[in-house]
Design a protein around this nucleic acid. Structure first.
Lengths: 249, 249
DNA sequence: TTTAAACATTGATCTCGATCAAGGCGCGTT
DNA sequence: AACGCGCCTTGATCGAGATCAATGTTTAAA
């Protein structure tokens, strides 16, 4: 969620701030920026570690610096559905809300830059542009959630896998500034189980469909965690998407 | 989406405004309120009529006064997934976004109170509390979308139907101030087809599962569009939800 | 290097919901 | 009343993905 199209590397001072990408770097005044710097802190979570449980009070907001975190809802009998995937530069937090409404778990080793929620909220009231930015980010999340709903409700297993791979490939290409022409190569930051939770499938089906895409030549598996996409358009075609969704071209 | 817990009937002047429920009534200053009144307009759409197509520029924002509207995404081959359900008092619009990203369709006769987007935006910049309110509403939508994702990805057909009925029953009870003890009665504002699009099912499965819940005594069908729920807790149980989700008790 | 545990793949079978098909019901029109 | 049309229900069958089961692979600890 909440992906910044390009990371701004010319703002070293706030390089890891949860809001750096457009809000602070674009709008904030230097005095406020100093305050942001003074109250931020870092924390690293190991793979599988729970960052926050559903229902817990959420006293920090932040953003992913490196690694991958997941948001998921679980039913009483253990069925689980991922409802958010947080990659580097994504924002974590629900401004103005006292509790988390889903489990936040580290998919692999995750480094997070955090603010105390109360201090962040105070800052927001003094910086109207920040509030605007938060609204914009939440709308991005909502759009992503709605695409995700189409995937869960109407796509076949094969389309689901292709869609997920396309999303991960796009994110990776943005971060590394690759172009499509090179033939994308990227790593899968999720286990088969996490992919299954993302897609509303079982791990067996995930595995089978990845094999099928491999057999069809749409992807090449360097190993079980590294994928090469020779032709990105072919992958999008498998995903059933009708647009290229803003790929770096 | 964006449900107001109780409609404020003591603010006649802005009774139909897209933002009446908490933002204007709670925060706005009288001079601004007058301006809101001056620029609002009404429009009624017939059942099945498309209010806006995906990709179109969206020059109005507004809210549902009566009737039901749906947001849905469609794939190239016609598969459709509903991604938003707008009941009376719900907000329509993506503040700051130039286009709609899904089809907006009237499920039955819908009356909408509208602002020109540009005028509304201008107002927002002068009323910081309004921006805060929009953020809050968008977060509500995001929470709803995430619950919906759990439904689509992991619930059985029967649980899906029960969940939808529970949502509609709750909304109806809130509007009419019924209590659970009475044994809820409410009308289904959606056709079987719309329910199927909501739930990621086919109309046949929707029909069958409604029949099954009827046979099990969880619901009573007065006719195909009116439902009685003798025991709301039993319905929630069928839905697989672990919380009562804020029912009026 | 061996071992154990987590993760991934593949096969065989089953099941829930989709699909195909036929009728029924409600309602407005002629 | 008869007709047509949209909507809903029910039955029969099919198939995609789940489930059950076995085996292979990677990783890291001993």
């Amino acid at each position: 969620m909440l992906q910044a199209p390009v990371i701004m590397q010319d703002h070293e001072r706030c390089a890891d701030c949860p809001i750096r990408h457009r809000a602070v770097c674009a709008y904030c005044e230097p005095p406020e920026l100093v305050k942001l710097d003074a109250i931020k802190s870092y924390k690293t979570y190991k793979a599988g570690e729970t960052i926050a449980w559903a229902g817990e009070p959420m006293d920090v907001i932040g953003s992913v610096v490196s690694g991958v975190a997941t948001l998921s809802r679980t039913m009483a009998d253990g069925r689980r559905q991922m409802v958010g995937l947080l990659l580097p530069s994504d924002f974590i937090g629900r401004p103005g809300r006292p509790t988390v409404s889903f489990d936040v778990v580290a998919a692999n080793e995750v480094r997070i830059c955090r603010f105390k929620a109360s201090e962040f909220e105070a800052l927001v009231t003094r910086m109207p542009a920040l509030e605007r930015r938060l609204l914009e980010m939440t709308l991005d999340d909502l759009d992503a959630a709605r695409d995700w709903m189409l995937l869960l409700g109407r796509k076949t297993a094969r389309e689901k896998i292709a869609s997920l791979l396309a999303i991960l490939a796009r994110r990776d290409a943005n971060l590394t500034q690759q172009t499509v022409a090179d033939g994308l190569v990227f790593s899968l930051p999720l286990t088969r189980e996490a992919m299954a939770d993302y897609l509303g499938l079982t791990i067996e089906t995930v595995s089978r469909q990845i094999s099928a895409l491999k057999k069809a030549g749409v992807i090449v598996l360097e190993d079980s965690r590294h994928v090469r996409v020779p032709d990105f358009v072919a992958l999008l075609d498998e995903a059933g998407d009708d647009s290229d969704g803003g790929m770096v071209s």
